[in-house]
């Protein structure tokens, strides 16, 4: 099996099969990031496609030897943030319902774990937009501050600041779950 580096090099040489293999490797994560930001399954799927097409069109500029993941995640995040900007412009947010209800309970987890997750998801959904995006990337997609900064184009300080504000609000909303006496 070809390594990721080889796949990228072959894709740069015009091998669409190699690029297809990269799509297979990253499509699930890309879709998850896109959905986390735009909160709509159809938009997220279109966005994931668009991100991969954009990556393919610019693959010649991609520095060989670097990991493909952060690059495709950055493209995805930028496209998703553009969707949010566009929605803000056309007041789409009121028309397109976010999809917290689309989250299905994990059958392999106890009901209490699903309930806690639902509470956390609801609290994150209520955060202001950029706090929500950054919190989503940090808490659910498990990215670190530096990675989030690179993906969103924000400075690391701004990411920390968004997370700090988000944390204060989440602590308040989830106080009954994570109260001080709960330690």
């Amino acid at each position: 099996m070809e390594s990721e580096r080889e796949l990228v090099e072959h894709a740069q040489a015009g091998d669409t099969g190699a690029f297809d293999a990269l799509v297979s490797l990253y499509s699930k994560r890309v879709l998850s990031i896109a959905w986390g930001i735009v909160r709509n399954a159809i938009d997220a799927e279109e966005l994931a496609q668009e991100a991969f097409v954009k990556a393919y069109q610019n693959i010649a500029r991609f520095r060989s030897g670097e990991p493909f993941g952060p690059w495709i995640f950055r493209i995805t995040t930028n496209l998703a943030l553009d969707v949010l900007k566009h929605r803000r412009r056309v007041k789409h947010e009121e028309l397109t319902e976010r999809e917290p209800a689309m989250r299905r309970d994990r059958a392999d987890l106890p009901a209490i774990a699903n309930e806690i997750a639902r509470r956390i998801g609801g609290a994150i959904d209520e955060l202001p937009e950029m706090q929500r995006v950054v919190a989503q990337l940090h808490l659910i997609e498990q990215f670190e501050h530096r990675e989030i900064a690179s993906m969103t184009g924000l400075s690391e300080g701004t990411v920390r600041s968004h997370l700090s504000l988000a944390r204060a609000k989440l602590r308040e909303k989830l106080a009954d779950l994570y109260g001080d006496g709960d330690d």
């Binding site: 699930k28 879709l31 998850s32 959905w35 986390g36 399954a41 997220a44 799927e45 989250r103 299905r104 309970d105 994990r106 987890l109 774990a113 699903n114 806690i116 997750a117 956390i120 998801g121 994150i124 808490l139 659910i140 997609e141």
Partner: peptide
């Protein structure tokens, strides 16, 4: 605790 919130397409 938020792990189950990852999108499952």
């Amino acid at each position: 605790d938020a792990a189950p919130l990852r999108y499952e397409p």
